[in-house]
Amino acid sequence: MSGYWGGILGILCINIIFAYSIFLPAASGQLNLGGAGFMALGAYSAAYLNTALELPMWITIPGAAIFTAAISFVIAFPILRTRGVYMVLATFAFAEVVAGVIINMEAVGGASGYEVPSFADLDVLAILAIATIGFVFYLLATRFGLSMRAVHDDENVAALFGVNVRMTQVMTFTIGGALAGIAGALYAHQYNYIEIQYFNIMISIFVLLYVLIGGTQTAYGPLFGAILFTFLPEFLRLPEMAGVANGAVLAEWRFVIFGAFLVAVMVFRPEGLITRAMVDRLRHGRAPEDITGEAS
């Protein structure tokens, strides 16, 4: 495999874990636009453990997960008091606070960035990405997963049936934080250098798009979203790289094509590309409507 594609696959692994970190709260009805902040916490905590304390990766990565989860747990209480667009703003503001604090912390390099000695190769990234996929699918298959999706659909009715709504939301936010921490740690160990400017609002928007465009109804959604968003811009560059005539035009226009694609998805598939009905259809080989007799 070329270094180029190896690099892309590495990014894909990080994106998958990062997407699931946003998916878990989203699946229980909370939109998090502060993904970059949580990822930065993971990246910087892993980097600090690795650089300042000279700890190996098998400690820095779980350490980053635990640290980010702990911060997520603490801020979950004030943030989860907000609803809808206010929650989006609160999580965005949190990410800005994280960036503001880190840029002023000389201990982790401040504005000039921070070096990370240990290198995580593709194997480590792939193993953790696969483990994360397995973990999220498992979680959704449990009663806790059922509670999450019930809270997403109707908090009041979920509470009436005995679901501890607040605990469910805090837990998903915290587990999401842990996954963002792992994604950040892997980013730090993959690139061996981090700077806070990377963890900006665009990163938070992109990861939310992976999840929303992929679909929040099933665990396949964010996986598909992350794969699509990682590869699509690269595929649009392929003709140029292969020296095809006018290939450069496609490469230049790729962000326009990408934007148009996003708008099209939002118009035609507002619930995301992968929906529950679609997964059921693929699994059972027929549409639910066919069985109810309501299909036209």
């Binding site: 019930a150 009715v157 979920a158 109804q217």
Partner: peptide, 17 residues
């Protein structure tokens, strides 16, 4: 007020919570 995105059996299992 069933959970619209859950299947029949999942809605029923919510009742067991």
């Amino acid at each position: 007020r069933l959970m619209p995105h859950l299947s029949t059996i999942e809605n029923v299992m919510l009742g067991q919570h």
